[in-house]
Design a protein around this nucleic acid. Structure first.
Length: 289
DNA sequence: AAAGTAACCTGCCCGC
DNA sequence: TGCGGGCAGGTTACTT
């Protein structure tokens, strides 16, 4: 589900709602979600602590506590973090049976971890330690230090297809299936092109497309598809669906040339493209040609 | 190095 | 109406 824009939206919402709140109790209904430490330690450490900072790194959310501990979320495919004020109910479209974890605050409000497919993960570690998963992440695509030179440097010498390179979190952190499709369409590049086959001009278009697409999607508070699975902290959908160009449009036409879009599979993920506007597909040479 | 597959889960949609 | 297959925003492990 959530890629950089969705996770960034939740992080921003958390900063607004849960900062300086004291956790007084925790309820765990699905222990499997918590990867470290044990459930008992998890509860014992969190009880009585204040959330004093929230950050995002790639698709991970880090909540820093006053005790020097750090609560980390990865939302997997369908994870939601929801906030419910005292005596208020969240959006009724969200199914309560998938509420797996409750954090009760002193003021009567609560933070809920909800996850239909249960692929999400939660850790509680010391803030001065780093999760190996986070340590190995690549560039933050919206940071100023991520320049065109840096982007070209990680792509231009790699043989793999450009879509997989973009989705590999060790190269760039936060791009998933939706935004990989969108960004390649905007840049007019076929998803199966090899990284080392891209011209300087193509790399430039792709770099600008990554920056502008992700920025717009953050401004729109992320993308909620027809199934309405992604929600922000208040249970509300994101608005990027209004702006999405090709992702999910199985019977749609290209917004640029009007021809039918096509869907291929790359690493068993549906990949949307316009065969006309992204026609520079690599030529497969026959043996003994 | 790169590409493919399966695994972890639940729910929904489609075709028969 | 019911059932099976395929698919869904992610990541990892393992195999070719």
């Amino acid at each position: 589900m959530p890629e950089l824009p969705e996770v960034e939206t939740i992080k921003n919402d958390l900063e607004k709602e849960v900062l300086h709140k004291k956790i007084i109790d925790i309820e765990v209904n699905l222990p499997r979600i918590i990867k470290f430490p044990t459930i008992e330690q998890f509860k014992a450490v969190l009880k009585g602590k204040f959330i004093e900072g929230v950050k995002r790194r790639g698709k991970y959310i880090q909540c820093f506590l006053d005790s020097g501990d750090c609560l980390i979320f990865h939302l997997g495919m369908s994870g939601l973090i929801l906030y419910q004020k005292k005596n208020e109910n969240i959006n009724s479209k969200i199914k309560q049976q998938h509420n797996h974890l409750f954090f009760f605050f002193e003021d009567g409000s609560q933070m809920i971890y909800n996850d239909i497919r249960q692929f999400g993960k939660i850790w509680l570690i010391k803030a001065n330690e780093e999760l190996p998963e986070i340590k190995s992440l690549g560039w933050e695509p919206l940071e100023e230090s991520f320049t065109f030179q840096e982007f070209a440097g990680i792509i231009h010498n790699k043989k793999g297809n450009i879509k997989s390179l973009l989705m590999n979190q060790k190269n760039i952190a936060g791009i998933g299936n939706i935004y990989a499709c969108e960004v390649l369409f905007t840049a007019g590049i076929h998803p199966l092109r090899q990284g080392n086959s891209l011209t300087d001009n193509e790399l430039r278009k792709l770099y600008l497309s990554i920056r502008s697409t992700l920025t717009r999607a953050v401004q729109a508070r992320g993308m909620t598809l027809e199934d309405e699975s992604y929600r922000d902290l208040m249970g509300e959908p994101g608005n990027y669906k209004e702006e999405v160009l090709i992702y999910g449009k199985r019977k749609g036409n290209c917004p640029a040339c009007g021809q039918p879009l096509s869907v291929i599979r790359i690493e068993s993920r549906s990949t949307f493209l316009c065969p006309i506007c992204q026609k520079n597909k690599p030529v497969k040479l026959k043996k003994n040609g």
